[in-house]
Amino acid sequence: MQKDTTSIELISCGKTFKDGTRALEKINLNINGGETIVLLGPSGCGKTTLLRIIAGLEEPDEGGKIIFNKENVTDLQIEKRNVGMVFQSYALFPNMNVKENIGYGLKVRKLDKNKIDDRVSEMLEMMHINDLSLRRIDQLSGGQRQRVALARAIAVRPRVLLLDEPLTALDAILRDRLRVEIDSLLRSLGITAIYVTHDQSEAMALGDRIVVMSDGKISQIGTPRDIYYHPQNEFVADFIGTVNRILGSDIKKLDSLEGKELLFRPEDIEIVEKKYSHLTGVVKASFFLGEKTRLIVNYNAGEQLSLEGRYKKEYVIGSEIHLRFNVDSLIILPN
């Protein structure tokens, strides 16, 4: 649908608020046209501030630059940047019905009425909310509201779509369903999208690339696989998925790893017979989760590991267990 995609370049964009709070260190970031970038991090990490800087709702500190397709938009107000924005609180106008909400951006652009109607119908169709067009906002459910908010944001054919935790206020089932819809919507539009979330599974599912942030800094940028299998630092390793830590010296038969701290995911360790094992531990707890079982295992008198797999056998608490690592998937963090 949209072929001329917009790339975004952030050069040295930091943000210090008037009260002296440093929300964002100076950040450089390149976003390719048509790419979906997810800004992921715990609350207070600066991800929303970064999104608001891209939107034009906040100005970067002196020296920061925002480039849309080689055009410097740093001094351009949000209303001139032609970005679509979706808010966590939906931010639908309560004094307008669904149709008027979706058509608002077109109305302020002074498009003629027929064009607005056509475009609004197209949006209602695309978001599967045809039958809601005349409803008031307070008559809509959370999921319906978010669909209207999305329709309103893309109705103006923005250069960039910015989504600020759009699914956080929804319940789990709806969140999953809308996540799939947003994913296919972004792919079909081919629009450059920046998606802010603190939910790692949302980030993994939606992002072409993920920007993991902490304390106002970028911790790592990479594809979901990169981030999961090759975390560059402790923060990323801990924030994405569950990670186990073990000292190389605790592992038998793997002398080359002596003295190093190794990280591994719960699914990268197998239960084996004693003669093949790297490590022996005692089952401390067992959680049957349906598609998999999670075991908490104690070793070395007090150290703890968590492992996951499709174990047919039930492991009794207190029983001895022999473990073998998938050596290729051990993560050694760069210093």
Binding site: L57, E79, G84, F87, F93, Y104, R109
Partner: peptide, 13 residues
């Protein structure tokens, strides 16, 4: 709600 004004601004108002 400040976000209503921000939403309107983002739509070009």
């Amino acid at each position: 709600d400040k976000s209503l004004e921000e939403a309107a601004k983002s739509l070009g108002a």
